[in-house]
């Protein structure tokens, strides 16, 4: 069992989410940086879809009531066990009673912690992910909360050298395929200038600020299904890229779809994004 000593501003339990329920209005949710969670799970010998923790900017601190093997990936941060810095290049053991502290993200935004056996809270619709939009799944971490650890897996931790998936600071270039509603806009405007990532971004969507996109078609779009990575353009013309906790349907036109939203999981507010057209 794990006891939460310092929850951080938003630390949630995440796995691969709950696909298959979008027609009932249930968001998919799941870790924003899936490759990072997968790597962490691989390092401790878990199945790739085991539930881990996702921190936001300021990390968290946890006391392990039993000895456990953990791995930490994603954002670069100083990690300490009982105040002693440890390397996160590989999985490591946290002794019973020790406090693991994931520090402030120095590069990137979200750290992922996997523990051998996985975080074993009750799944909801097949997933242990916290969905910040609908409220499904376990609550976000809070002071004193306890988290059960699953039965240890039998496969020994493989010797994987962890490669940081955190993009270099500077401009992020996102591949976007236009459509389905690019004909509602002067779509070339999307590629004209860079956008800044707004501090209002969250697990639902990455809000961008920059030159407003111009509509060529007035009127309201009847609600339609939306996908992960959809670039939705509300009335103010500032694009919003849907992330894991996005609503299942939306009434604002989607100008294009980003092919890989993973870098946005680690993109800090204020950093810039540019779009590149892909076929």
């Amino acid at each position: 069992m794990i006891t939460v000593m310092r929850p951080g501003p938003l630390t949630t339990i995440q796995d691969i989410g709950r696909p298959g329920y979008a027609h009932l209005g249930v968001p998919r949710s799941g870790a924003l940086d899936q490759p990072a969670l997968r790597r962490a799970n691989a390092l401790v010998g878990n199945e790739f879809g085991a539930a881990g923790l996702e921190t936001t900017l300021l990390g968290c601190a946890l006391r392990f009531e039993v000895t456990a093997v953990v791995a930490i990936t994603g954002a670069e941060a100083v990690v300490r066990v009982d105040k002693q810095p440890v390397s996160t290049a590989a999985a490591f053991e946290v002794p019973a009673g020790a406090v693991l502290d994931i520090g402030r993200a120095q590069r990137g935004v979200r750290s992922y912690l996997a523990v051998a056996g996985g975080i074993d809270v009750e799944p909801v619709l097949g997933s242990r992910s916290t969905d910040t939009l609908s409220g499904l799944g376990p609550p976000k971490l809070a002071d004193g909360m306890t988290l059960p650890i699953g039965a240890g897996s039998s496969s020994p931790p493989p010797n994987i050298s962890e490669k940081s998936g955190v993009p270099d600071s500077g401009e992020l270039v996102l591949g976007v395929r236009l459509g389905p509603r690019d004909d509602w806009f002067e779509a070339a405007g999307l590629f004209a200038e860079a956008y800044a990532i707004s501090p209002l971004s969250n697990r639902v969507g990455c809000r961008l600020a920059g030159s407003a996109l111009t509509r060529t078609q007035a009127g309201e779009l009847p609600s339609e299904g939306v996908v992960l990575g959809a670039v939705q353009v509300p009335a103010d013309g500032q694009p919003l890229i849907f992330l894991a906790d996005h609503p299942t349907t939306g009434g604002y036109p989607v100008i294009g779809v980003v092919d890989d939203v993973t870098p946005l999981a680690q993109a800090r507010p204020g950093s810039t994004v540019r779009f590149r057209a892909i076929d």
Binding site: H23, P222, E224, G225, T249
Partner: peptide, 15 residues
Amino acid sequence: FLDIVPGATTILLDG
């Protein structure tokens, strides 16, 4: 398909 999502005048096939 992973998801079949009807809308007002559309159906989204995801995955």
